[in-house]
C-alpha cells in the first residue's frame, strides 16, 4: 500500500536557503543541498525547492540547483520557480529533478500542462495552486486561484481550475491555502477536501502546519496524499522522524 508522504519545502534565493534551518552537524546552514541531505537522513519522503530568485537569471539558478541536488540527494525532488515551457522542463529534468512545479505559467497558458505531460509524462508535472477564500460569510465556500506568488488574482475558481489541470495531464497538485499559510493554525481542511473530492490525482497540502496534529488532520479529514511543511521542520520544532512516528501512531501508513 502506498504511504502518505512528508515533504519539507525549501525556499531558495540565488542558490541559498532563505529561512535558516536548524540542523545539528551541518556545515553550511544556507546550502540547500546540505539541508536537503539532512532531511533525507531524517526520513523525508521527498523535497520541494522553490526558487524565489527575483531576476531573469532564475532559470539558470534553477538548473544549477537541480544539478547539484542530483549529485547528493537520493530521494525524489521537485523544483519550482518561474518555469515557463517545455524547454525549461527539459533542462531541469535533464539536470536531475524528478518533478517540476508550475503555477503562473499554467494559468497563463494551460496548454503547457498538456504539452509537458505528453512529452515528459504526467508524473513530473506538479501544478501548484495558491488559493484564497473569496466567498462571503454564509455563502457556500469558494476559493480563487492566485499567481505571481499570491500577488495577482486570476478570477479562476480554484476547484474548477484543479479539475481542468488534472484533465490536461497534471500529475499532482501542490495546494497552498493563502488564508492559513504562515498562521501555524493548521491546514485549510475545507479547501483541501474540496480539491481532493474533485480530482483523482494526489494532492500535497500546504500552508498552516503548526503542530503534528495538523499533519494528521489534513490526511485523515481532507484525504491529502502528502503534507508539505516548512517552518515546523526548519526551526527544529519537530524532526521529520518524530512527525512520521506520530502520524503512524494515528493509523496513517507511513514509511518509517
Amino acid at each position: 500500500m502506498l504511504s502518505k508522504r512528508i515533504i519539507p519545502c525549501l525556499d531558495v534565493r540565488n542558490g541559498r536557503v532563505v529561512k535558516g534551518v536548524r540542523f545539528v552537524n551541518i556545515r553550511d546552514a544556507g546550502d540547500p543541498v546540505e539541508m536537503a541531505s539532512a532531511y533525507d537522513r531524517e526520513g523525508a519522503d521527498e523535497l520541494i525547492f522553490l526558487d524565489i530568485t527575483a531576476s531573469h537569471e532564475r532559470r539558470e539558478t534553477v538548473v544549477e540547483l537541480a544539478g547539484r541536488c542530483a549529485e547528493e540527494l537520493f530521494i525524489p525532488f521537485t523544483i519550482g520557480g518561474g518555469m515557463r515551457d517545455e524547454a525549461d522542463f527539459r533542462k531541469v529534468l535533464k539536470a536531475g529533478a524528478d518533478k517540476i512545479a508550475i503555477n503562473t505559467a499554467a494559468l497563463d497558458n494551460p496548454d503547457v500542462i498538456n504539452r509537458c505531460a505528453r512529452r515528459f509524462g504526467s508524473q513530473c508535472v506538479v501544478v501548484a495552486i495558491d488559493a484564497k477564500l473569496v466567498s462571503e460569510e454564509g455563502e457556500e465556500k469558494r476559493w480563487e486561484a492566485f499567481v505571481h506568488g499570491g500577488r495577482t488574482p486570476t478570477g479562476r475558481d480554484a476547484v474548477k481550475w484543479a479539475v481542468e489541470a488534472a484533465e490536461r495531464g497534471a500529475g499532482e497538485f501542490m495546494l497552498t491555502s493563502m488564508d492559513t499559510d504562515g498562521t501555524r493554525d493548521g491546514y485549510d481542511i475545507d479547501l483541501t477536501k474540496a480539491i481532493t473530492d474533485a480530482v483523482e490525482i494526489p494532492v500535497i497540502a500546504s500552508g498552516g502546519a503548526g503542530n503534528l496534529d495538523h499533519l494528521v488532520e489534513v490526511v485523515r479529514d481532507a484525504d491529502a496524499d502528502a503534507v508539505l511543511a516548512a517552518s515546523i521542520f526548519h526551526y527544529g520544532t519537530y524532526s521529520i522522524h518524530e512527525a512520521k512516528e506520530y502520524m503512524a501512531a494515528a493509523g496513517i501508513h507511513m514509511r518509517l
Binding site: 500500500m1 502506498l2 504511504s3 508522504r5 519522503d45 509524462g121 504526467s122 508524473q123 500529475g171 483523482e200 490525482i201 494526489p202 496524499d225 514509511r255
Partner: peptide, 10 residues
C-alpha cells in the same frame, strides 16, 4: 487504483 503507481510502497 490510479495508474501510474507513483510513490513509496512496501
Amino acid at each position: 487504483l490510479k495508474i501510474p503507481h507513483i510513490g513509496w510502497n512496501d
